[in-house]
Simulated scan of single mutants.
Amino acid sequence: MENFTVFADYGPLRYLFFSLSLLIYMTIISANLVIVLSVFCLENSLHQPMYIFICSLCLNSLYGSTGFFPRFLMDLLSNTHFISCPLCFTQMYVITTYLGHEVSLLTVMAYDRFAAICQPLHYHSKMTFRTVLLLLILVVLYTVGGAAYVLYQPTTLPLCGNKLNRIYCNDWSVTELSCEDLTAIRITSHFYAIAFFFIHLSFILYTYLRILLVCRRSSSEFRGKALQTCLPHIVTFGNFCISVLCEVLLNRYNIDEVNPSVVIALSLEFLIIPPIINPLVYGLNLPQIRAHIPFRRVL
């Protein structure tokens, strides 16, 4: 099979959708680049583990958005909505690794906050530049390995159709085109998805439980500072969980019975909301970053 057909019935509103999508994409690029430039290029005092992880989160947002928006913008203006197999699987890989990087980075950031608040005397000896670099490398390798497993099945299944009921390529939309019985694959994929997110969620909840116990025994000033550094991470992680839930619901249920507008909105949620929310939450909430953001008076 040489091409897939993506769901793309935009009608006469295609130019409006194109303008809105281009505006959203430019906003994502601008907001995340401001954080990256502020951390890495404009201020040496921000070369600390917490800000390096925030910068990595913004770079991942740029990576995931670029894996989706350029193709989507082209599709909006095109009368045909075909995507080649290599390009489709490339998009699947980018979006899958984007999700994996996001949840893994949020987990590493939870550990960083745990070490800073619960073990402040040992923080600088634990979170050295070498440790931060090693954690980032492990995040990439761990995610790439998981993505290879997720994408292996769609590449080996015989397909009996080419119409994807999504506006982008993902592993389950391609798997559903298979001629074979998908019961075993469905069970396996459910187990893997649940295990993957349960491990990360359990670790993050454990770190925040320990942080709460420390804050309970500390002064109100200490609690205020801890909340200030933890709140952006809590908001980011909560927003990401909602985004992933929307994606999982679309992947596991029959979307033919759902209003197309709802399908499009839910499909785009995890590709739009986190990349916009993340730099805004960190840029506006953390004074250390806000003080070095260009055009901060506008913010």
Score class of each variant (00 low, 15 high):
210 R>V: 01
160 C>W: 08
214 V>Q: 12
262 V>E: 00
217 R>W: 10
283 G>I: 01
156 T>Q: 12
167 I>F: 14
250 L>Y: 06
166 R>E: 03
182 L>M: 02
227 L>K: 13
230 C>F: 07
237 F>E: 07
209 L>C: 04
226 A>M: 05
225 K>W: 13
285 N>M: 10
196 F>G: 11
226 A>C: 09
263 V>R: 15
277 I>H: 05
169 C>Q: 01
255 I>V: 15
188 T>H: 09
230 C>G: 12
161 G>A: 10
232 P>V: 13
239 N>A: 04
291 A>M: 03
224 G>N: 12
273 I>Q: 07
229 T>L: 06
177 L>A: 03
257 E>H: 11
261 S>R: 15
253 Y>K: 04
292 H>S: 09
225 K>Q: 13
181 D>V: 00
267 S>D: 02
292 H>G: 00
189 S>D: 12
273 I>L: 14
188 T>V: 10
163 K>R: 07
288 Q>R: 04
261 S>P: 05
291 A>T: 09
227 L>D: 15
166 R>N: 09
197 F>R: 14
251 N>I: 15
193 A>T: 15
222 F>M: 06
257 E>C: 06
255 I>H: 02
240 F>Y: 13
225 K>H: 15
156 T>V: 00
208 Y>V: 01
217 R>I: 14
225 K>G: 09
238 G>E: 03
212 L>H: 13
221 E>A: 07
235 V>D: 04
232 P>K: 08
166 R>V: 03
223 R>V: 01
174 V>R: 04
280 L>I: 04
183 T>V: 06
261 S>V: 08
254 N>S: 12
186 R>H: 13
239 N>G: 11
253 Y>T: 09
287 P>H: 00
291 A>C: 02
263 V>F: 09
236 T>G: 05
231 L>S: 06
211 I>A: 00
199 I>D: 05
272 I>T: 05
270 F>N: 04
217 R>K: 09
221 E>W: 14
246 C>L: 12
189 S>R: 14
292 H>F: 03
239 N>Q: 07
230 C>Q: 01
294 P>G: 08
229 T>V: 12
250 L>K: 12
234 I>S: 04
202 S>M: 03
164 L>M: 10
160 C>L: 06
228 Q>D: 06
279 P>L: 07
276 I>G: 03
159 L>W: 09
160 C>N: 06
263 V>M: 09
265 A>S: 09
252 R>C: 05
274 P>W: 03
263 V>I: 12
193 A>H: 11
251 N>G: 14
179 C>R: 00
201 L>N: 06
180 E>P: 01
256 D>S: 13
291 A>Y: 06
290 R>V: 00
249 L>T: 14
214 V>P: 00
164 L>Y: 07
233 H>P: 00
294 P>L: 02
235 V>N: 11
248 V>G: 02
277 I>C: 03
218 S>K: 12
167 I>E: 13
267 S>N: 13
233 H>V: 06
249 L>P: 00
289 I>E: 05
161 G>I: 00
181 D>G: 01
